[in-house]
């Protein structure tokens, strides 16, 4: 079976006193050719999961397979078949764009020419700078080069650890479009991001928090499963308003959400009474709302 299978994976890092649990009993199956988003805040365990799947780290317990290959036993084969783009820019800054690409093609026993069709769309955006050293590129271009390098050996599965962190909005959008076109090539893609708004661009998302997978589903299903009334509220004194909302009996919880506050109502509750100068409307839940509500139920 291809794709990615994760069975009951746990991993902890030793601390001075005790240990830090990075992953707790993760179960996950990603079918071949899916664009899967791993959504969670910093420190949720996203990178640890990536490092286990890319054979850089051994899990404490549990097993995982990538492209039907076991991450502990068949690691040499996995390394030939996956592309990994770490969260930090990790190409040679003292080599040019072209030299980096050639180097990564050559160490996988292939050439840029052979798989040019795969990276054409990304690479043509940075091709004018191919004689420029990688260290001198802008953030967005570095990401595109890193993606090109991770793709050049035609991997079956692509792991992208926070590829859009620190990248401007336009480049982010372009980047996601690229990912969707790669999915069309049949490549399984697992991408992590701390940005909730990117979740809707994935086929399915997994919400991860403090090492636990809180929910895995399509973005639409997750939103449908929210199951409660959600209000978007705005007023002249936002801080005061938030306190007010949190104190109400009918409101389960309230939190700032951009320029609005979101308030989740208790089952069958109705709109709270608020002064006339306060703008209130019912809204559809976002992935971020789902995440916050799941986080509350998990925290108990």
């Amino acid at each position: 079976m291809n794709g990615i299978t994760i069975n009951n994976i746990s991993k902890s890092y030793p601390l001075k006193k005790g240990k830090q649990e990075a992953l707790k009993n993760i179960e996950l199956t990603i079918p071949e050719g899916e664009l899967f988003g791993l959504i969670g805040p910093d420190g949720a365990g996203k990178t640890t999961l990536f490092r286990i799947l890319t054979t850089l780290l051994l899990p404490d317990s549990g097993t995982a397979s990538v492209n039907g290959l076991d991450t502990t036993k068949d690691f040499m084969q996995i390394r030939k078949e996956v592309g990994y783009m770490p969260g930090r820019f990790s190409l040679y800054t003292d080599l040019t764009v072209e030299e980096n690409l050639n180097f990564f093609a050559n160490i996988f026993n292939t050439s840029v020419k052979e798989n040019y069709h795969l990276i054409k769309e990304v690479y043509k955006m940075i091709e004018p700078f191919k004689k420029v050293r990688a260290g001198k590129l802008s953030g967005g271009m570095k990401q595109k080069l890193a993606l090109s390098c991770a793709l050049i050996h035609k991997p079956k599965t692509l792991f992208l650890d926070e590829p859009t962190t620190g990248v401007d909005a336009v480049s982010r959008k372009e980047f996601w479009e690229l990912l969707r076109s790669l999915r069309a090539e049949g490549i399984t893609i697992m991408v992590s991001t701390p940005y909730m708004d990117e979740a809707s661009l994935c086929d399915r998302v997994g919400l991860i928090q403090q090492g636990s997978m809180m929910g895995v589903d399509t973005p639409q299903h997750l939103r449908n499963a929210f199951g409660k009334k959600l209000l978007s509220v705005k007023g002249p004194d936002m801080l005061q308003l938030l306190r007010q909302l949190q104190a109400m009996d009918t409101v389960e919880h309230a939190y700032p959400f951009g320029e609005y506050h979101h308030a989740v109502l208790k089952d069958a509750a109705f709109l709270p009474e608020l002064p006339a100068n306060i703008e209130v409307k019912e809204v559809e839940p976002d992935i971020e709302d789902c995440f916050i509500s799941l986080m509350r139920t998990h925290a108990g």
Partner: peptide, 13 residues
């Protein structure tokens, strides 16, 4: 330090 070792480690080198 610059993280390139990660890329080398996931390669079949």
């Amino acid at each position: 330090e610059i993280g390139t070792i990660e890329q080398i480690n996931v390669s079949p080198i």
